[in-house]
């Protein structure tokens, strides 16, 4: 007997799916924004060789990139409370995804900074600007242009990796799907639905990043 794909089932679970979608969007947007900030700060610290902090960021990046994300999530949610730093499910999720995306963004932004010529720094300093103003007004805007495609990849990964948060009971899209499936066994409908929703989110994110990139590039197009 052919499998009966049940659209009505999806419609009936629409509200729950939308709620999961909202949580996925919320945790992803927050984590992506924060991980960009972590990336810019970390890369600046690395590129300008700020003593101690530079080594600390190098260790952080290596640690995150060489351990499984799920272990990192468990560490933050189950591990930190034993040293009195317990966080809610929601904030554990934000911290875990930010830490993960931030590590990759440190490397992405480092590449961006390294692409800014030494002459830009000398020009800024020669005008009597403080190094931090050079960073803020020149190096970051120029470096971001270069780093955006790589940061988009990282951001897409953060969005997709938010589904790991279901392992600590975070009520995002995948968690909602698992919960429903456990009750109704309509696996095909449920996972097809969330697959499409994730795909839509990724396409939207790519579209927004391309718009941003286009805007940041506008001074250069005429060249």
């Amino acid at each position: 007997m052919a499998y009966q794909f049940d659209f009505a089932y999806i419609i009936a679970n629409g509200p729950a799916l939308l709620q999961g979608l909202a949580m996925t969007v919320l945790v992803s947007v927050l984590s992506i924004a924060l991980s960009v900030i972590v990336g810019v700060v970390g890369a600046a610290v690395r590129v300008f060789r700020v003593p101690v902090l530079s080594q600390a960021f190098a260790f952080y990046v290596d640690f995150i990139r060489n351990t499984p994300l799920l272990a990192q999530i468990f560490f933050i949610f189950y591990g930190l409370p034993s040293i009195g730093m317990g966080l809610s499910i929601f904030w554990s999720g934000v911290v875990a995804l930010t830490a993960w995306g931030g590590a990759y963004n440190v490397e992405n932004m480092r590449g961006g900074f390294l692409a800014v010529s030494k002459g830009m720094r000398e020009a800024a300093l020669s005008l009597g600007l403080r190094p931090l103003l050079y960073l803020w007004l020149v190096a970051i805007p120029l470096g971001l242009r270069v780093a955006i495609p790589a940061m988009l990849n990282t951001s897409v990964s953060v969005l997709k990796n938010s589904s790991y948060l279901q392992a600590i009971g975070f009520g995002e899209l995948t968690f909602v799907a698992m919960e429903r499936v456990a009750m109704d066994f309509r696996t095909l409908e449920m996972f097809a639905s969330i697959g499409l929703l994730y795909l839509g989110l990724v396409l939207l994110l790519s579209f927004l990043a391309r718009r941003l990139e286009h805007r940041l590039q506008s001074p250069f197009r005429t060249a």
Binding site: S117, G119, M120, E122, A123, A124, L125, S126, L127, G128, L129, R130, P131, L137, V138, P141, L142, R145, L216, P219, F220, A223
Partner: peptide, 26 residues
């Protein structure tokens, strides 16, 4: 002293071979 130089540079203009204008600013 980079601080001392920073203040002096406000009195000493510099022009480079490759112009070094900030490309993202008008």
């Amino acid at each position: 002293s980079q601080r001392e130089w920073r203040l002096l540079r406000q009195r000493i203009g510099m022009v480079f071979q490759d112009y070094s204008l900030f490309p993202h600013l008008t």
